[in-house]
């Protein structure tokens, strides 16, 4: 059997949805026509997500929905899927996470960005998952998912950025097949708010979540960040995830998987 172990890692980069998308791929189709086609399909999938969900585009479905010009049933089916994910995330986080953000005028605006990114990356990876004997790690703007077919192969080595010095690494975590998502204030400033108060959480600088699904790792990282002082406590209740919370004072709290810690 041909394994990906030891084979050369090929890298590809594109810019879509406002962030860079990086692919590291190794194995049989790393550098052939099928592999390149899968990469193009993944990027196309992300571009489609942007056209549907971008809150920066007045003509996106989500913007039209927000203005009341269309109903959910008029939109492509993934709109209902993403909004349902947002509701589930709101339930799981006690309301700290929401796709309905308080506006300055007192109303609520529709902003599913906290769900869309991880969900869209997860969906886009379907083309890469279809490649046989090929392992990959797909990253979009600092959130990523990995696939390794052979359990004996080396896991992907994931670095976690230092929120106080983004040119440095704060931690490392090996991931064979799974997802890593990080939420924080580096690069973009305070863009996550507690949906219950509309205020940016002060106690936490960065939250990283490792889990099976990038959709949920991304949601959990954002929700934990929004919970501020409760970030690590809440994250420790989430089964099947590990994580790392970096507090505003620079201290850190690694979060083991609640399932494992029960053993």
């Amino acid at each position: 059997m041909t394994t990906a172990t030891g084979s050369r890692t090929v890298r590809r980069v594109a810019h879509v949805m406002g962030f860079p998308v990086s692919l590291a791929v190794r194995g049989r189709h790393a550098d052939d026509a099928a592999g390149r086609r899968a990469w193009e399909d993944a990027v196309d999938s992300l571009a489609r997500a942007e056209s549907v969900f971008s809150t920066y585009r007045a003509d996106s479905w989500i913007s039209r929905l927000d203005r009341g010009e269309v109903d959910v049933v008029d939109c492509p089916p993934e709109v209902a899927e993403v909004l349902a994910l947002g509701d589930a995330a709101a339930d799981a986080s006690g309301g700290a996470f929401s796709v309905h953000r308080p506006r300055r005028d007192g109303g609520f605006g529709l902003d599913p960005s906290g769900v869309v990114k991880g969900w869209a990356l997860e969906r886009s990876a379907a083309a890469l998952r279809a490649l046989d004997e090929t392992d990959f790690c797909l990253s979009g703007g600092g959130d990523l998912l990995c696939r390794t077919l052979d359990p004996a192969a080396e896991p992907w080595r994931i670095g976690i950025e230092d929120p106080f010095a983004p040119q440095r690494l704060l931690a490392r975590v090996p991931v064979s097949t799974g997802a890593v998502a990080t939420s924080g204030t580096a690069h973009r400033g305070a863009h996550v708010v507690d949906a219950r108060t509309g205020a940016a959480p002060a106690a936490v600088a960065q939250v990283t979540v490792v889990g099976a699904s990038l959709t949920w790792a991304d949601i959990d990282a954002t929700a934990a960040f929004a919970l501020g002082p409760d970030a690590a406590t809440w994250l420790s209740t989430r089964a099947g995830r590990t994580g790392l919370v970096v507090w505003a004072d620079g201290t850190t709290t690694p979060v083991p998987d609640v399932q494992r810690s029960q053993w």
């Binding site: 950025e161 490392r172 998502a181 973009r188």
Partner: peptide, 29 residues
């Protein structure tokens, strides 16, 4: 289960870090 992120004590640059990919707060283009 998944591994718990392990803190890196030393300062690392991309060139010396033995890593494949970086997770960080949303990086814009």
């Amino acid at each position: 289960a998944y591994a718990v992120p392990e803190l890196v004590q030393e300062t690392l640059s991309a060139q010396s870090a033995d890593i494949d990919m970086v997770s960080g707060a949303t990086v814009t283009s």
